[in-house]
Amino acid sequence: MVISLNPMANASSKRIASANETALKNLELGLLIVNSLSPLLRFFLSLVTSRSFIPRKFVIFLHVVLVGGSIVTWRWFKTVGTPSRAGSGVRVGADLGGKGVIELGWDLIYMTWICTLGSAILGDWVWWLSLLIPAFASYKLFSTIRPILAMFLPGIFGPKNPQAQAQQQQAQGNAAATGGEDRPESKRQAKLKARMERGDKRVQQVQVQRNR
């Protein structure tokens, strides 16, 4: 989105630019605090407990990969979320509070922070929580492409029973159109109907009086 440089700039664009600036500052501060505090906590706990200061190689690998991914995501957020000049106007950055890929980027950063600090305090087993990142990403990706898959494979990715669902909606619409006349009869009405079928004279007399 490109806006002109004048006092009447779009209020929504200004709000997005301000929110992005705040989010990027908090993100930079969070990256600094988490990655500085984690080794300090590990060192302190290695002195007071039997835990080793240096984690296992696999944990180091996960830490490097996820922290590196967080830094790359931060740089990408800074690129797409910062306003830039575009000719005679300003190109407003993408909303960093949006959904889709941006939301997955935040999930990666937050889960990395949780695993980094959690493993420093509780132990290296906390890094198993990092498996939630690809699991959630796969779920979001499937939710995004499911409507497309349903177009080609409706029997697998479509509604469970579209015919039954359509019939139910049609029945509800008919009931609403007739003012609720299709509602099931009450127990009293069912008993009176049964008596009439058996030829109960009292019920027949009441029915005759109503007809009059």
Rank of each mutant, 00 (worst) to 15 (best):
L24K: 10
L24G: 06
K25P: 00
K25D: 10
N26W: 07
E28C: 14
E28K: 15
E28Q: 15
G30S: 14
L31C: 07
I33V: 15
I33R: 06
I33M: 13
N35G: 00
S36I: 11
L37C: 05
P39Y: 05
P39V: 04
L40P: 08
L41W: 03
R42D: 09
F43K: 04
F44H: 07
L45A: 07
L45N: 10
T49L: 06
F53H: 06
I54D: 12
I54C: 09
I54W: 14
P55G: 09
P55Q: 10
R56Y: 05
R56S: 15
K57P: 10
F61N: 08
F61D: 12
H63S: 15
H63W: 07
V65D: 07
V67Q: 11
V67P: 08
V67A: 11
G68W: 04
G68S: 03
G69E: 11
I71Y: 11
I71L: 15
V72H: 06
T73N: 08
W74Y: 15
W74E: 10
W76R: 14
F77D: 03
P83W: 02
P83A: 04
G87E: 08
G89I: 04
G89F: 03
V90I: 15
V90F: 05
V90A: 12
R91C: 06
G93Y: 10
D95Q: 09
L96S: 02
L96F: 02
G97S: 13
G98V: 09
G98R: 13
V101S: 10
I102A: 13
E103P: 04
E103Q: 15
E103L: 15
L104F: 09
L104Q: 13
G105W: 02
G105M: 03
G105S: 08
W106Q: 09
D107C: 11
I114K: 05
C115Y: 10
C115V: 12
L117S: 09
L117T: 06
S119M: 02
A120H: 06
I121N: 01
I121Y: 09
I121M: 11
G123V: 01
W125G: 13
W125M: 11
V126L: 12
V126R: 01
W127T: 12
W127H: 13
W128Q: 07
L129D: 03
S130D: 03
L132H: 00
P134W: 07
A135F: 11
F136W: 07
A137S: 06
A137L: 01
Y139C: 05
L141K: 00
S143P: 00
I145L: 07
I145Q: 04
I145V: 15
R146D: 00
P147F: 00
I148H: 07
I148G: 05
L149Y: 02
L149R: 01
M151F: 08
P154Q: 02
P154Y: 04
G155A: 08
I156E: 04
G158R: 02
P159C: 01
K160Y: 10
